[in-house]
Design a protein around this nucleic acid. Structure first.
Length: 448
DNA sequence: ATAGGGCTAGTA
DNA sequence: TACTAGCCCTAT
């Protein structure tokens, strides 16, 4: 694959909603070869995929696949696997299983299938390969879930927990960290270097005396342009962890961090990259879609799927035409977890739909790594916000605040003020069952 | 996203 | 009936 193809593809994968692009022309101009020189492009692609899933409120085994692929790619570029990555995998795996716990009894429904396919087989393979994603928390979930098969009380307890928000929080954190680590796209980096070089050249023309007295000024810029390969910057960044979207280093959840001199190098590089910056890179990583741009966005999405298929066909297994159509058509959010926490009586149509999905999927599919792995279908797309009642006339059951929740709220207000969303995000494990409005209401009560 | 008014259920 | 905690709706 030509380097320029790689740069262009990477650039557009990062900027999903660009109305000035003709995807078809662009795609026809690109030739995708072996994957060895596409690491940065692949990582961008996987991150974009995870991001798209989250935007659609989808957390399923496809997400687990993507997290596993991301781990392999990061290991290829000799990056450490971050805590957010491990946690995201752990809670997504648990969430995928909990989604099959809507019947009141463990023996009904697909819970045993989910256990077998997700925990015994999928995670079994991970264990064999010595993956970093197999954490203490993951093993604890495995033990609990398998115990729940025999213990109705435990099954009930797990069944009623809501961990979706936790999984989403970790995935969001992972995306933020990984986008930050990727830094500028290769195309932008090179463009910026050329910009700097031109600027330096202009200075040379404008002031020959200075140039003679300091010949290194131009040489340095030229040298960077010629010698810096696209992955140089990335490799340097890839060894570090815990960098936020503003380009600042911070230690995340006790993960390893750069030595001080390395931090300085990275910061210097960032300072150079961000001087005369061409665009607000970070904001564009997660762009918000203008209402008038839906057509262009859809066109671009198709284009992305096409690119992704070229990059690595086996990773796009759930985006084959049929499923792609399903995904693009059915994006209407469904009420979250109604069946799990409800009476257990399920709508017949929904049961039939699930059966159809199961019948369609063979249960065994080829994965990115080339290993055979079973796949559970996604029964119902759920809301991203698990507590939001969509068009439901039923009031949520009154639930009194626990001292732990109250403490988390007080500490949150102390730290973030009245930013209820931030407070909730800061402590999803405790406040996961409360909406931002709940936080606001409770605070109103507390200060009365 | 947040603030504020109002509603509901529980309780004294 | 009055009060409260938690929940919901709507305007900004």
């Amino acid at each position: 694959m030509e380097v320029i193809d790689q740069w262009v593809a990477e650039f557009f994968i990062r900027r999903q909603h660009n109305t000035r692009v003709s995807p078809i022309n662009l795609l026809s101009a690109l030739k995708f070869g072996d994957s060895s020189d596409c690491l940065k492009l692949k990582i961008s692609s996987v991150l974009r995929d995870i991001s798209n899933s989250l935007n659609r409120g989808m957390l399923d085994e496809g997400t687990l696949d993507l997290l596993e692929i991301l781990e392999k790619l990061l290991l290829q570029q000799r990056s450490l696997i971050m805590e957010s990555h491990k946690s995201a995998y752990c809670w997504t795996a648990a969430e995928c299983t909990l989604r099959f716990m809507w019947p009141l009894s463990a023996s009904d429904g697909l819970f045993t299938d989910a256990l077998e396919k997700i925990w015994t087989k999928r995670i079994g393979i991970l264990k064999e390969s010595g993956s970093d994603l197999v954490t203490h928390d993951l093993l604890k979930w495995e033990t609990d879930l398998k115990k729940a098969l025999e213990d109705p009380e435990l099954y009930q307890r797990i069944r009623e927990t809501n961990i979706r928000y936790t999984a989403i929080s970790f995935l969001t954190q992972l995306l933020k960290e990984q986008w930050a680590l990727l830094g500028n796209s290769s195309l932008e980096s090179v463009a910026q270097r050329r910009f700097l070089k031109r600027k330096a050249d202009n200075n040379v023309e404008g002031d020959c005396v200075d140039n003679r007295s300091d010949p290194n000024a131009v040489d340095e810029s030229t040298r960077r342009l010629e010698n810096d390969t696209i992955d140089n910057v990335n490799e340097r960044r890839g060894t570090g962890e815990g960098e936020d979207g503003n380009g600042n280093n911070r230690d995340i959840e006790g993960a390893g961090c750069l030595e001080n001199d390395e931090i300085d190098k990275v910061n210097e590089q960032h300072a150079a990259d961000e001087e005369q910056t061409m665009s607000a890179q970070e904001q564009e990583h997660e762009p918000s879609l203008d209402k008038g741009d839906k057509m262009a966005a859809r066109e671009l999405k198709d284009y992305l799927l096409e690119i992704q298929r070229h990059i690595d066909p086996s990773t796009r297994q759930d985006q084959e035409p049929n499923n792609a159509i399903n995904r693009s058509v059915d994006v209407t959010p469904q009420p979250a977890r109604v069946n799990r926490s409800g009476t257990g009586v399920q709508d017949h149509n929904e049961v039939r739909q699930q059966d159809n999905v199961i019948a369609r999927g063979s249960g065994i599919q080829e994965t990115w790594s080339g290993r055979i792995r079973p796949r559970l279908p996604t029964p119902v797309p759920l809301n991203v916000s698990p507590l939001k009642n969509v068009n439901s006339p039923v009031r949520r059951r009154k639930k009194f605040w626990t001292p732990e929740e109250e403490k988390a709220l007080r500490e949150g207000v102390k730290e973030y003020g009245k930013s209820w969303k931030d407070i909730k995000n800061a402590n999803p494990a405790v406040l996961g069952e409360r909406t931002e409005v709940d936080l606001k209401d409770k605070w109103r009560n507390l200060v009365r």
